[in-house]
Write a protein that binds this DNA or RNA. Sequence first.
DNA 1: TCGTTCTTCTAAATCGATCTAGAAAAACGA
DNA 2: TCGTTTTTCTAGATCGATTTAGAAGAACGA
Lengths: 344, 344
Amino acid sequence: MAGVTLKTVAKAVGVSPSTVSNAYNKPDQLSTALRDRILAAAHELGYAGPDASARALRSGKAGAIGVLFTDKLSYAFSDPFAVGFLAGLAEVAEEFRTSLLLMPVGTEDTADSSTAVQQAAIDAAAIFCVPYGHPALDILAARGLPAAATDPDNYTDSWVAIDEVAAAMSLGEHLTRLGHRDIVVLVEGAGAAGTGPVEMRLDEVLSGNPTQRLEGLQKAMPEARIRLVSGGHNAFNSGVAGASWVLDSQDRPTAIVGLSDVQALGAMEAMRVRGLVPGRDLTVTGFDDIPAAEQAGLTTIHQPIGEKGRVLGRLLLDPATTERQVLLPTELVVRASSGPAPKR
Amino acid sequence: MAGVTLKTVAKAVGVSPSTVSNAYNKPDQLSTALRDRILAAAHELGYAGPDASARALRSGKAGAIGVLFTDKLSYAFSDPFAVGFLAGLAEVAEEFRTSLLLMPVGTEDTADSSTAVQQAAIDAAAIFCVPYGHPALDILAARGLPAAATDPDNYTDSWVAIDEVAAAMSLGEHLTRLGHRDIVVLVEGAGAAGTGPVEMRLDEVLSGNPTQRLEGLQKAMPEARIRLVSGGHNAFNSGVAGASWVLDSQDRPTAIVGLSDVQALGAMEAMRVRGLVPGRDLTVTGFDDIPAAEQAGLTTIHQPIGEKGRVLGRLLLDPATTERQVLLPTELVVRASSGPAPKR
DNA sequence: TCGTTCTTCTAAATCGATCTAGAAAAACGA
DNA sequence: TCGTTTTTCTAGATCGATTTAGAAGAACGA
């Protein structure tokens, strides 16, 4: 069973290894009769076709693109935004007969993160929300693989993104129009588990999307008091925790802005538990417009999540795509969760 | 930049290729001084470390496990059950420093499905809800890779599953107790897109989970009239479509049983649109207990979704795991969507 | 001082295919 | 019939590393 290679088959049939290889890869390079004979012999010997690693080595094509995540891989699947993005990417990958290799790169640890990125047999890499300066990016760069990112501030010049600042501004303007002058922003915190929600300073916020979204908010609400609170990493529960902490404090804002929809949905849940109605008692807004946002009636910034994945896929796989940098449109979607600030 | 290999580095430093290889893989096989010199030279030359394909070929380890899906890859991400399973699998994969290679295998087309399964450089395969007899499984078998499945009736003797029949029976008994004698089961249909919902015969239902769940239902409800309806593949929209068709028909059942939660949730949506209240006007039940089921108040069969992935991961990666076949527990979770059948 | 054991390093084989260049045979045109 | 093209097949180099067995030198104990 084991140890059956091209050579074994070649010897059995009485042809050269090259011919057997051709039987699999270039059917028009040999007569049909011989090809059938080879395939039959291969089947009989239990030969499963050319070895993947060997083929990858020789031909230089791995038939897979890697997807880099900062977070643990398990988070990736719990985050609807990531899931939507992956679905889009997968669609294009399928089209090009390419598999998707998911690679967690850890948050900061160089030694660990390197292994996956270094050892992976891939043709190209999709960089999904990995902050600038992450060690894995250097490793990737060293490999010289084509890469495309979901942020313009990444090391590669291929990316698909949205205008985060402008999007956040339109949200900020919406809040301003509604009269909000005192808001709390739920951000993703570095905070270790168990420490509970904490108030953060602007400079503590990691780079990437969050910073730009904050920047946009501040620009659009220059007169507002903006506080930052983190309930943990980017997840529903963190939103619940962060918002609960805010709601139970002596100093409630008039609006809670989740920097992602999942956090905002968590905030809505925290309100529900306390008998508060989003949009009436307190305004809650999100970011991204994941499917659940619509059902929950969450005011948020819509961005074409699946399309982001699809465009990135084409950036990596489709030679016909000449554009290297794609900016997708966003739109403020006003739903029931936002309402006028109560008079003071 | 390109063409920098182990040899290049070796020549530059003036050592043998083996030594450079050891510098990366067996640091204790050479002096620290030399190792540093090698690594420095490598960095300077822009060498990104041992080539993944070559390493995989020589050492026989790809550092990845493949995940086989029947459906299109993009569906995998839209299905909460799949997502939960993947999250669990990913957790274990991470632990073992292994990446996940997602491989769609198409529904039936041999030629197409083979490519991914054949070309993938993987150490083992996770077979996720791929029906028995699927051509990709034969290809996989021929490769002689370790494999584990989410169904006991698959070709490999490693699997993690639930007792589908028993689980379905407990659901059937629940419905019987509530007085239901006329039910419609929403099944996944082969139906091409655009054909609209159709009534199906039992023998038209594909093998695997669905058949067993139906079997359990029938066993527990011998006197009931059980009809099968398909609104398409396994998705929310299909549930909406199938249920709408049923609700608008002249011959409404007293209960709609989704063979998966997403279908059941679709059915609830179809009811909502029509002003019907699940549990009062009509009973709706699901299967799997995905997160959304709890929020929606859906009566369903709970199964440990994430754990299923974790166990499968250990089956494939953890040499310490001796068990080959794991049966996970299930539980009927009664929520608001099921209620007594109206008196006739 | 001499054999013995470590440590450090290397030569050459090997993993399993694909590719290039070209030979042998068959088909073709005039 | 003879050169020319096309079809069919092959030899041998090559992709880039890892591995095995062992050499050279250093350290060690008695």
